[in-house]
Amino acid sequence: MEKHLLAIPNRCTGCNRCVYACAAVKEGMFMPSKARLKINNIPHQGYSVPSVCFHCPKPDCLEACPEEAIFRNERGVVVVDARKCDGCGDCVSACPYGMIEQYGSGKAFKCDLCGGNPACVAECHFGALVFKEPDKTARKLRGTQMKQRITEGSPAQKRHELAVRIRDEAVRIPRTPGYMGG
C-alpha cells in the first residue's frame, strides 16, 4: 500500500516550520504563501490544523484541468506539469480543500510529496505530520478530513473552513504522547 502524508491536527502547535521548510525546498526561500501545505491557526481556541494535499483517489483538480496538465504519476502522486498549465485556475476552484494554488503567472502549484521524502514531516517536532502506510486509525482520520468538501471561497477560506469544521478532532486530550506514536 502506498504511503500517505497525514495530518494529525491535535498534535499541531501552529509553529509553521513545515510550511517554511516546504517553501525553502520548493521556492528556495522562506515564502509561506507559496508553500504546498499550510497551517490554519485558531489561536483563540488554542488549536491548529495542517492543510495537506490528500492526493485524492478521484482528484477534483485533475478532473477540472482542461489542459490535462494535472496527472497522477507512477508513484500515485497527483502532480502538475507546469509546461502544460495555461493558468486558467479551474483546478483552484475545483479543489474542495484549497490545496492547489497559482503563482502570479497563473501557473498552478501543489504538493508532490517531495518525490517520496516530504521535507515538512522532517521539520515537525510534535508528530503532527506523518508519512506512512495508513492503518485503521489513520484512515479514519484522513476520512474525517476528506469528508469536509468546501466548494465556496478562496483556497485560504476553504482551508480555514475545514479547520473550523473539524475542531473536535483537533482539540482532544491528551494531545501529546500516546496517539499513533509518529
Binding site: T13, P43, F126, P174, R175
Partner: peptide, 25 residues
C-alpha cells in the same frame, strides 16, 4: 489540552489549558 508555539519554534512552550469551561493559553 494542547501545545502551542510561536512561529518557527520547535519547543512549543505554550500550554493551552481548559478547566471548568475556562480556556486560556
Amino acid at each position: 489540552i494542547g501545545d502551542r508555539a510561536c512561529a518557527s519554534c520547535p519547543l512549543g512552550c505554550g500550554n493551552f489549558t481548559s478547566l471548568n469551561g475556562v480556556q486560556v493559553e
